[in-house]
Structures are given as structure tokens and as C-alpha cells.
Amino acid sequence: MNAQPLRLGALVVSISMVALAAGCQRVGAPAAQAAPPVVATATVEPLGTAGLGLSGTVRARVEAPLAFQVGGRIAARRVDAGQSVQAGQVLFELDPADLEQAVRAAEADVAAAEAALRTAQADLERVRTLAAQGFVSAQATDRAQLAAREAASRRDAAQARLSQVRNGRAYAQLRAPAAGVVTEVTGQPGQVVAAGQPVATLAQAGAREVEVFFPETVTPPATGQARLPDGRMVPLALREAAPMVDTLARTRRARYRADGLPAELPLGSVVSTQFALPGRPAAAAESTSPVGTWRVPVGALDERAEGPRVWRVRDGKLEAVPVRVLRLDDRHAVVAAPLQAGERVVALGTHLLQPGMTVQERAR
């Protein structure tokens, strides 16, 4: 029997097994050495320790809507939005035709009531004369006295109505109750308005304030600062705060006294405000890091857990950091969190992350 073919076959089988094993190792090697996922990161931007910066609007202390005390058709408008006015200046006028007719009717009622009173008084004098001569009873005298009193009351009522309609005729002119600036005009000539319907808004001259809208989770602080367009800082003192959160905007309105505002700063100007927020977020109370206010990309927020958080990258691994959201816009979020300046957080795709995950950073 020839042994050479058998040896040749065994050699072929051995070579095939070695090649198969090497191929299995090459296929399995990439799975065992898979690179960690790449994440986009951004550096947190400090906004001050436990501070909050918001935009405020310069307002007049008193902003009153103006309205006629009587109804009618507007005959003339003598003011425009943005115009400065003085106390007593005529702003609007109603068509006085109906009011004049009402005055004449009231004057006629007064004349009739006075004539009736004179007649009742004359009857009372005659009855008293006849009663003294014994020609009428005491009951007739009482009736005459009551008639005279009734006529006098009707005369007084007619005179009161006349004074009222005369006042109404004077109300046909809407005058500025104080000096200031007309910030809004809604009434137009030819428009029929009811009594009490606002036709303009007057921002009275004098003290001015800064109006700020806070997130619903923040109680308006008692003090703060406003940065003017020229860089100067003006102290703020809380005067009033809305007791309820706005149901649509989810904010709380607050008014701050700002006695140092320059007179040349127009109403409606936007100023930057800064407030110190006492305390620390409850979610981060156990952390030893100081709680500060930071700006992060809005995509860095992850709300899958019990509260909002961001993912901090340390030594290539992820850590979840609880935060308190102070405000949002279309690009950034301002949060209070135990972060440090220069730290990096994942900026996108936070819904795919898990604690302790190893990642590769790619700065945005």
C-alpha cells in the first residue's frame, strides 16, 4: 500500500483547519476591540455662582388705561402713540349732540319740578288759611304739607339729574389725568365706545421701574442689579411680584424700583438684570461641588430620569449630573448645577447614554 497519498491528504486537512481557525480569529477580533461611540461635547459656560441673569423692560410706575366715563361716538382723536402730554390736555372728544339733548331735557325737568313745587306751596298756604278759619280739617292740611314735601323732593332729584348730565357733557372730552407719555392708542374717530372702554394707555411721568419675568421655579429675589446700555449698573429693589404663575408663559412677573435710571432712557428699553439666588437645588444637595449657574446647549438636557440632568465627560466616561432649569431659548439652556468651569457635557443624543459608558469626545 502506497503511504504517500495518505500523508498528502493529512497535510491538506491540517492546513485547512489552521486557515479556518485563523479566519475565525480575524472575524472575532473587531467585535472584541470595538471602538467606543463618539459623542459631541460642549464646554459649560459659567454665568456666576448661584446667580440668574434675565432681561428686564423699563416701565413707568403708573401705566393707566384711559376711557370715557360716558358712551358715544368718537368725534376727534388729538393724540398719537408715543406722544408726550400734559395734565388736563384733551386727548379724545365724543360727539356732543346726544349729550346736549340730555342736558336740555334735564333742564326742562328741573323747570317743571320747580313749577310743581311753587304750586304745592301755594296750595299749602291756602289750606292753612282756611284751616285757621275752620273751613277745612286738619287732615287736609297734612295732605297739603305732604304734597309740598313731595314736590320739593322731585325738584331736588331733577336738579341732581341735571348736574349729572352736565358732568356727562363735560366727559365728552377725555383729558390726560397726569403728565406722561401715551404708549398705546386704540380708539379711532367714528368708533362707538361704551363707558369705561379703554381707548388709550398713559404711562405717567415720574418714577420708573424694571419689569422682569422669572421662571416659575424661581421666587423673585428682593434685590438685584440692572446693566444699562452704557455699561453702568443700577441697583434694583423689589416692589411687587405677581402672586400666581402665568398659565401660558409659566413665568412670574415682578416689578423692581430703579431710582438710578437716567431720564433719557426711553420707556420699553431692554436692560440686562442680575440676581443672586439663595440656596441650592434639592437634586444636587448631596454634592460637594458648589452650585453655580451655567449655560449649556439645549440638546444637552436629558429628562428621562426623575428630573432634568446633563452628562458630564470625565476620563472618557459619562456621569449624570442633576440640574435645575432656569430658562430656555432655541439654542441654550441656563441651569443651576454642581459643575466646574471648563467641564464638558454631551451636547447631543443624550437619550442614548447610560452611566459609566465609555465614549470618545468630538468638540462641537
Rank of each mutant, 00 (worst) to 15 (best):
T350L: 00
E150M: 14
R239S: 09
R104P: 05
D329Q: 10
A42N: 04
Q159I: 10
T43R: 11
L261F: 04
G187F: 01
Y171Q: 15
M1R: 12
W311A: 02
R253V: 02
V346D: 00
P235H: 05
L318M: 02
A148W: 00
L267V: 02
P36H: 11
E343S: 10
Q188H: 11
G279D: 03
A34H: 09
A160C: 08
P308L: 10
S163F: 11
V18H: 09
Q197F: 08
T223W: 07
E150A: 15
P262G: 04
L117C: 12
A205N: 07
L352P: 04
G231P: 00
R175H: 13
L228H: 07
Q83P: 05
G268M: 08
R161D: 11
S137V: 11
A87P: 07
V323F: 03
A140L: 14
V85E: 00
R295L: 08
L130T: 03
V210H: 02
A254W: 00
E319R: 13
S137Y: 06
R252C: 01
P355S: 05
G349Y: 03
R78A: 14
A35V: 13
A157R: 14
E216V: 10
L99E: 08
G342K: 10
A112D: 13
R208F: 01
L117N: 06
S84N: 13
A106I: 03
G23N: 13
T57Q: 12
L348H: 11
G260R: 05
P189N: 06
V298C: 06
A115I: 07
R312P: 07
S55C: 05
E93C: 03
R295W: 02
D302T: 11
A122I: 09
S269G: 01
D302E: 08
Q25F: 13
G268C: 07
T57R: 14
A263Y: 05
R227D: 08
R304G: 15
V345Y: 05
V136H: 02
T41L: 10
R257I: 04
A113N: 02
H332M: 13
G190M: 04
